[in-house]
Amino acid sequence: MHDSRAIPGPASTTTTQVATADHEVHNPALLHHFADAQQQKNAASLGMWLFLVTEIMFFGGMFCAYLIYRLAHFNAFAAGSQQLDIKMGAINTAVLIVSSVTVVLAVKAAEVGKRKLLTGYLVVTVLLGMTFLVVKGFEYKEKFEKHHVPGPSFNFTDKFDDNGKQIPVNSKEAELFFSLYFAMTGMHALHMIIGCGLFGTLAVLAWKGHYAPSYFTPIENAGLYWHLVDIIWIYLFPLLYLISRHS
């Protein structure tokens, strides 16, 4: 992130004093090519949203592919979806929602300059992100054990309806479902891993006193990223786990 414009911590108050003497209300985090701090903040926010739009389109392409293939191979996709564990998915959704709350509380803490509280919320966010990844790992482990991972050892047995009647499922089409499942949840998990690294870094910087009420843009922008990753999961959960239960 933008460490170079960080506010000096309590240890280096002399720099702040020099800066204050220089200008009446000089903000050391303000770069010279911006008119004021608000303009600088708006520019950073605009850049972050532009990035998030590319992320929306990136995941949107995968969502679109999933919807089209689900229409084309409806039975196999329903059978594949019914193999997913709704309980695990729901727990992970809840974990991500709680982490989004801690992120927004972290931004709030940064805004009022509570350094320890800010660090605490950032650390809790990282822990919740890791919890999500561990649960996801157990789900993946189950997929490996059941041979539901696309590849040479992929094996999908036919599903049965409520009366115990066997319904034939095209194994190749079911493999397509699991390919999309792993592509979408895997790409989402990669974003979670990056998010955990990002928030871990921010937690260290926050603890060192890099952020103050006059400058906490990295916290805000990383928060926007985390919320977007949360929203992607909010859609992945019903699309992959829920909507094909009764098909």
Partner: peptide, 13 residues
């Protein structure tokens, strides 16, 4: 965008 906003009040906006 007002040009002469007080930079110390960013947080309140």
């Amino acid at each position: 965008m007002a040009e002469h906003e007080d930079t110390t009040h960013v947080e309140h906006e």
